[in-house]
Design a binder for these strands. Structure first.
Length: 270
DNA sequence: ATGGTGGAAGGTCCA
């Protein structure tokens, strides 16, 4: 019965939802998830391709878009969503955070600031903003109740050495500097979340979810980073089917791909 | 040491 089927949740930095609605449609046809959390939708609320999503079987939408073609997050669902107040994580008031409750599970969708090129908060305001966002993340999620809670999104930090193609060569590159990786791990632990990918896979297993557009051949060079994450609180960890974690590599290729691959997990319904 | 690509906006920013 539908009520006993697992809840399949996807996180995907789509890099323009208007351009890539067909990619989402293909994913739906192939994997049939219940909830898709998108980041970098790059449109305003009224511009979201609502009709296409309804037609592909995701009629329930929570859209947090932004003017100017930047940022923006959305959650699309097969079943009804209750929109929740999201934690105040972004001091710049970008559209980067949203939260819903679906099938008894809280789903938080986050697009953490990339942080610019210079990993120095005094010289680079974007990096300072990124660190502030991480700090708030740890604080805000430390005091919530024990509802099953899943936090997903593009966190723009690859915390483990095996989350990047070269730990040594990326130590001074934004996304893998110690202040970011230690900050994110500290925030996650303070808030009581489990990083599912690293709970499932040993640290000698390299895991990536993003490959730059700038490589001549992203698959051949394989210089990836794990920037996209699925975290669960203890209540949700207990519902998680650990064998179901996937990075959907095929969607980094194909027609006009995003530079991020979708990742997914399945949970038993509470 | 540099520039490489991509999207959207709009004559440049963000990633």
């Amino acid at each position: 019965m539908a009520s006993k089927s697992p809840l399949k949740i996807v996180s995907w930095n789509i890099n323009s939802v208007r351009l890539r609605a067909p990619n989402v449609e293909r994913f739906m046809a192939e994997h049939n998830p219940d909830v898709i959390c998108l980041q970098e939708i790059k449109c305003q609320n009224a511009e979201f391709p609502e009709k296409a999503f309804k037609q592909m079987g995701l009629p329930y939408l929570a859209v947090n878009g932004q003017r100017g073609g930047h940022h923006g997050v959305a959650i699309a669902s097969r079943e009804p969503l209750e929109i929740l107040e999201a934690p105040d994580l972004c001091r710049e008031e970008h559209a980067r955070v949203q939260a819903v409750k679906v099938a008894g599970v809280e789903v938080h969708n986050i697009y953490l600031p990339a942080g610019g090129d210079t990993p120095d908060p005094d010289a680079n305001e974007k990096f300072a903003h990124k660190l502030d966002f991480v700090q708030r993340l740890g604080n805000e999620y430390s005091s919530l109740d024990g509802t099953p809670r899943v936090l997903v999104g593009d966190l723009n930090i690859a915390p483990h050495p095996s989350d990047v193609w070269s730990h040594k060569q990326l130590l001074k590159i934004v996304s893998h500097t110690p202040v970011e990786t230690e900050g994110l791990e500290g925030a996650r632990e303070a808030a009581g979340f489990t990083d599912l990918a690293r709970h499932i896979h040993e640290d000698d297993q390299r895991l990536y979810s993003w490959w730059s557009y700038r490589a001549r051949d992203w698959a051949a060079s394989n210089k990836g980073r794990r920037l996209d994450h699925i975290w669960t609180n203890d209540e949700a960890t207990g519902l998680t089917n650990m064998d179901s974690y996937r990075v959907h590599l095929a969607y980094r290729g194909g027609w006009k791909p995003s530079d991020h691959a979708p990742i997914s997990i399945e949970l038993a319904r509470p």
